[in-house]
Amino acid sequence: MHLTGPQKAAVLLLTLADRHSEKLFARLHEDEIKDVSIAMATLGAVDASVVETICKEFCENLGATGKLIGSYETTERMLLKTLPPDRVAQIMEEIRGPAGRTMWDKLGNVSESVLANYLKNEYPQTVAVVLSKVRPDHAARVLALLPEGFAMEVVMRMLRMETVQKEALEGVERTLKMEFMSNLARSHRQDSHEVMADIFNNLDRAAEGRIMAALEERNRESAERIRALMFTFDDLIRLDGPGVQLLLRSVDKEKLALALKGASDTLKEMFFRNLSERAAKMLKDDIAALGAVRLRDVDEAQAIMVATAKDLAATGQILLDDGQEAMIA
């Protein structure tokens, strides 16, 4: 198991008594605290043999015999012993938010759809400053998602932009940190059932059925919560006509036929209704021509359609309203 320097430091601090780790944290620079805190929060399980090796490297004869678990909770608990609560909250929000040492590095790791949704409500000049500081490929994807007229205003300001004054740049950074990044970090604290629903959405049908059945026996309430949060192929029935038509245009025809091969008659009919008579006949012929297909291939094609629907929803082209209703934006 290869560990970086900050990860080794995190392991060592977790092995020490609180009174010793408190003194070490108090002597670290702010950037070092961030690096070690990030490593500690994402460390996961560390085997005992690795712990012993690291302790030997630091000339500590601790003889650890168990495993250490590095998590957000243990990190926050340790930081609270040495730093003020508001500073700890700030560090933890930065850890939970996108990775990156600077604000612009962090923005570069934020989904373009999320960033565009935030920036469309800002002044064009502010957006111009932000897009001039992030990677060109990321800026291009964000720009493409902004409303057309607004995007052109941003482009014109970027063309006329000279060197941004330090005070103005610091002001934009401060606003992004206080409003956008802070809210983003908090929104990343997903409920465990939401995390499991995302995982179940990516299981093949056989594995999903097997694991869900076992979970129902152990904890029916959790199974029901997860099932309610999942968005499956059958949930596409909630799309309205324009939404279905956009999805049909966005999916490869071969994958579409394969996905519908295993669909219910009701779902097939919904898709056929949203095609021209000629296109619907061609699709029916494509499905019939497939013959016998493997269930695994059907599951994969249906998963592609679901993922495409989610991507369209993420960019605002269709709306999936709290898992209850779907419509075109």
Rank of each mutant, 00 (worst) to 15 (best):
Q7W: 11
R225H: 06
E162Y: 02
P124W: 07
F233Q: 03
R160I: 10
L107P: 00
L256Q: 08
I328W: 10
A151M: 08
R77A: 15
N61E: 13
D235S: 02
S264Y: 00
L295T: 15
M161I: 05
G262V: 08
L79F: 03
M103Q: 07
S21K: 08
T65E: 12
S21M: 04
D191P: 04
I95K: 00
L256F: 04
L176A: 01
L83Q: 04
K120M: 12
R135F: 09
V130P: 07
V142D: 00
M40E: 08
T15E: 09
Q190H: 10
Q165P: 12
S187Y: 02
M178G: 10
I95Y: 03
E217P: 06
R294Q: 13
A228N: 10
L260K: 02
Q245R: 15
R96D: 09
G171Y: 03
E32C: 06
L248Y: 10
E254I: 03
S222H: 13
L159P: 03
M158P: 00
E300V: 09
C55N: 13
V11L: 00
S21R: 13
G241A: 15
A89D: 08
L256M: 14
M270T: 15
K56N: 12
I91T: 02
L12G: 04
D137C: 05
D234L: 05
E30M: 10
M40D: 13
G100R: 01
V11E: 00
D18K: 14
E179S: 14
I237R: 06
E325N: 13
Q125A: 07
I304C: 03
R87E: 14
K268F: 05
G100M: 04
T42Q: 13
G323T: 04
E208F: 10
G243M: 01
A144V: 01
S187A: 02
L83M: 15
K253V: 01
Q7A: 11
H193F: 12
G316D: 01
E277H: 10
D234E: 14
R101M: 13
R160T: 11
I38F: 03
H138L: 05
R225W: 06
